[in-house]
């Protein structure tokens, strides 16, 4: 992704890697994360985010990859690479990309615990005891 972003008219490449953070509670722990997507729509929304960035900032290259399926704790789930002539727009645009992904891209993650699973953001889970997520 980074070499594809290198261009002579750009002086900055910003990279953002989102990794899976897991918390521990009540003796149980998260074994892995599992992502699912509404595939054609998710692909299109990622492309839209790239187009929004090109329109709003002086950015010459955007690439975003989001994993689906199983991701182990600490693993990379999303990567964003932005190239711009200057560093300011590169930093701002990559921040914008991750925030927009969390708003509009139809991707869902569930934490798979040793005793059930939790849909992140939905307050819906199969774990035996009721708890805050």
């Amino acid at each position: 992704m980074i070499s594809a972003a290198q261009r002579p008219d750009c002086g900055a490449i910003s990279t953002f890697i989102g990794t899976t953070r897991v918390d521990e509670s009540s003796g149980a722990s998260v074994e892995y994360l599992e992502y699912e997507a509404y595939r054609p729509m998710a692909d299109r929304k990622l492309e839209e985010i790239g187009a929004e960035i090109i329109e709003r900032w002086e950015v010459r290259h955007v690439s975003i990859i989001h994993r689906i399926g199983r991701v182990d704790p600490g693993g990379a789930s999303v990567a964003i690479v932005v190239a711009s002539p200057r560093r300011g727009p590169a930093f701002e645009a990559s921040r914008y990309a991750i925030e927009r992904i969390k708003e509009i891209v139809p991707i869902w993650k569930r934490e798979v615990w040793s005793d059930g699973y939790v849909w992140v953001g939905s307050q819906v889970d199969t774990r035996p005891l009721s708890h805050e997520v």
Partner: peptide, 10 residues
């Protein structure tokens, strides 16, 4: 028609 819970990507 797709039924979409709150998204949680990233």
């Amino acid at each position: 028609v797709a039924v979409l819970p709150p998204v949680s990507g990233g």
